[in-house]
């Protein structure tokens, strides 16, 4: 009974975590940098959904199409504003880590100005009452948000594996030098990947506000750790790995929460440490690339 419920919840949360984390992974795959502002961008998407629903009375999921284009533009601008300059510094990876930490602080402060410190949450019955899945009554919000993550991930895969630009993106991920030698404009591909990564983060925000029961300005700094864990489990730079990582993370987290709630919050951190120390390339990682 409890086991079945935890299993279903774990899978739904896993799909959501995969969607929420995938932008971070794309950025890392292409640019080798960890966007510490990722979580705050997710929270911005959540606030858009919140405003649409509580102020305009619209369906909060409309936030997904509404945020995509501005978020993409913001990502591309952020890329051109920071990355070329960062590449001049001695230790690009560290410099980018610190820089995006600064960006995350600014975004968090802006969110506080706009929405205050209180929790912003939406009605848990927005999508109706609990849904019966295999005899378990699962909240409709979880079902809707978990299942919506699937088409989002499919869109990303179609882009990466079927479109010209997507293939160029994957070529850059595999080897920047070879891609450049093959005539790919690596800078433009990187800028676009940055934009898409940010857009995916913002789009997942509309689901985050339901899956987490609400957001506040400091939610972002916790989300980025979760996303990083998911991505590390699956292996950095591998989009399919993120789905595996998300599902594994969702299941482990839900099961500890069910059977040992007071220790549940330590799980993400331990999981990250164990995966990094035992198999630093992640579950689907190829040995070729060193961390």
């Amino acid at each position: 009974m409890l086991f079945g419920y935890a299993l279903i919840a774990g899978v739904l949360f896993g799909l959501f975590y995969a969607f929420m984390s995938t932008g971070l992974n794309l950025l890392f795959g292409v640019l080798r940098l960890v966007n510490l502002a990722h979580g705050d961008i997710v929270v911005f998407g959540a606030y858009v959904a919140y405003s649409l629903s509580s102020m305009a009375g619209l369906n909060p999921l409309l936030a997904i199409p509404i945020t995509i284009v501005p978020a993409l533009a913001f990502g591309v601008l952020l890329y051109y504003g920071t990355v070329p300059r960062l590449n001049r510094s001695q230790d690009t990876e560290m410099a980018s880590l610190i820089l995006f930490f600064g960006v995350s602080q600014v975004l968090e402060a802006v969110a506080t100005f706009a929405y205050g410190n209180n929790q912003a949450s939406l009605s848990p019955t927005t999508f109706g009452g609990p849904i019966n899945i295999l005899g378990e009554h699962v909240p409709a919000t979880w079902v809707v948000c978990g299942l919506l993550s699937i088409p989002a991930l499919v869109v990303l895969f179609v882009y990466l594996y079927r479109s010209r630009l997507g293939m160029a993106t994957r070529a850059v991920m595999a080897s920047r030098e070879e891609a450049a030698a093959a005539g790919i404009n690596t800078r433009r591909v990187a800028a676009l990947a940055f934009g898409i990564g940010v857009a995916f983060a913002a789009a997942s925000g509309a689901l985050t506000i339901f899956m987490l029961g609400g957001v506040n300005p400091s939610t972002g700094s916790e989300l980025v750790l979760t996303a990083f864990t998911v991505v590390v489990i699956g292996s950095l730079g591998n989009p399919i790995g993120t789905v595996v990582g998300g599902l594994l993370y969702g299941l482990v987290f839900t099961f500890t929460k069910t059977y040992s709630p007071s220790w549940a919050d330590i799980v993400p951190y331990l999981l990250m440490l164990v995966v990094l120390l035992v198999r630093p390339t992640g579950i689907l990682g190829r040995r070729v690339r060193s961390a």
């Binding site: 409890l2 029961g213 916790e222 839900t254």
Partner: peptide, 11 residues
């Protein structure tokens, strides 16, 4: 910091 009580409510 827990913001999701779904599984605990089931328990």
């Amino acid at each position: 910091k827990t913001s999701d009580y779904g599984t605990i409510i089931q328990t």
